[in-house]
Nucleic acid binder design. Structure first.
Lengths: 233, 233
DNA sequence: CGAGCGTTTGAAATCGGTCAACAGCAGTGG
DNA sequence: CCACTGCTGTTGACCGATTTCAAACGCTCG
């Protein structure tokens, strides 16, 4: 985990997805002060680990990560996939211990937001505190939706939900939401959706035969978006 | 939904579960100002509803509520059960719209925390903002755990998790965690755990035959706590 | 005390899990 | 550059847990 690359929030292309809107230039500079460093991650590197003392929260700059929730007895579950602009580490603010482990699925980079400095900055720039609050609340909503999907949906619907969610988030960030590379393996999709690897594979072929998507290895193309949407609300 | 009963945080018995620790008397009085009103709910009354504009967050004073997450197409899922001391409505802070509906499972009462007033108070008493932040983060952790359970566990384990969680929370609040009334129906347990009513019923009888619990209608008694714990980690 | 809802129980059907074998892409080293 | 090896993903057959459909039971409330 290398620290380097002085950050500069005011010129960062992720700014619009990462920072609260309508910061003054002066505020931007102060935020830039706060986010002094970034960290580069190679595939499979951990950004933080379950059980560790929290020191910072992070903003993904590029690449993609997964977060895994785990219990003492070794049960593990992928609870989220993260794309550039996503804020991660938010599950640690309750007791200052990370509840999940964040692992890079490809070479990635994240901005480090030292938390004690963040807190003091929040007092000066209230919109930063509000921004964090919003992210926390949004994460709750996402988790509820995940619970809904795991609790109600059949394999097909869960997979459709997964694909559409990914597609939406890619589009939102300005990349192609209709054709992209899956950075996660079938095992990680399976864990995320609460099913087995083989079921993921079989269900993908079902969706292919239904001419909703095309898949070759980890390359995915959406053929019939509305068809997919009728599967996952 | 009746407004009445001037609140008084400084003498409220829920204080220890509800407010941040170590508030000065003067701060307590200011918080009391904020929480001017409570609302009484009869069974099945809604505290707030999915899609509504957020005006306040709430703290349960007595009784018990469930929150239901729902999608446009009518899928619904119970995402949480709430006991006295719990803060609810936290899923609304992202876009000021409630994402869930909170429904009383018995006659209940909640303190109303008008959100705009809360925000201005937060500036004066930073520990209040921090307290909210912690609650938000804890809710994320709880949701992740729920996802883990739905994704990995078989019916028995899910039910054990449900019972133990309820038991722990009752104990924490000083009531009897070994023998209590379930305020929710089998249908609500089923929704929460992502299974069917009949499976809940059958699985309960399994746990009874295994001499882990006794159940009669909605009265539940834990016979073998450690046995239950071996089922749910 | 009776009506009605909530709960339990039974039997049959189904979806997904498990076990096992195979295919295919990728990265290594000759 | 190609062959070998290993990891990742696919496919098939079988099995089991949960769902589904159906009916009976038993609280609880009016």
């Amino acid at each position: 985990m290398l620290m380097n690359a002085k950050s500069n929030c005011s010129t960062c292309v992720m700014g619009q997805f990462c920072l609260p809107h309508a910061l003054t230039n002066e505020e931007l500079d102060r935020v830039g002060e706060l986010v002094k460093n970034r960290t580069k991650l190679k595939k499979n590197d951990r950004l933080y680990q379950h059980g560790e003392k929290m020191s910072a929260i992070y903003n993904i700059r590029f690449g993609s990560l997964k977060s895994e929730y785990s219990t003492e007895d070794g049960q593990r579950q992928v609870v989220g996939f993260h794309l550039p602009g996503d804020m991660v580490g938010l599950d640690s603010l309750d007791n200052n211990i990370y509840q999940t482990t964040a692992i890079a699925m490809e070479d990635s980079e994240a901005c480090i937001i030292k938390f004690d400095e963040f807190e003091s900055l929040s007092h000066q720039i209230p919109s930063m505190a509000k921004h964090l609050q919003r992210n926390l609340s949004r994460e709750i909503g996402k988790a509820y939706h995940h619970v809904l999907s795991l609790g109600n949906d059949k394999a097909q619907e869960k997979l459709a939900y997964f694909i559409l969610d990914l597609s939406d988030r890619k589009s939102f960030r300005g990349s192609n939401g209709l054709e992209f590379e899956l950075k996660m393996g079938r095992d990680e999709i399976a864990s995320f959706l609460g099913m087995e690897i083989e079921t993921v594979s079989r269900t993908l072929t079902k969706l292919i035969k239904a001419e909703l998507i095309e898949v070759s290895y980890r390359h995915l193309k959406i053929i019939n978006m509305s068809g997919l949407r009728t599967l996952s609300p």
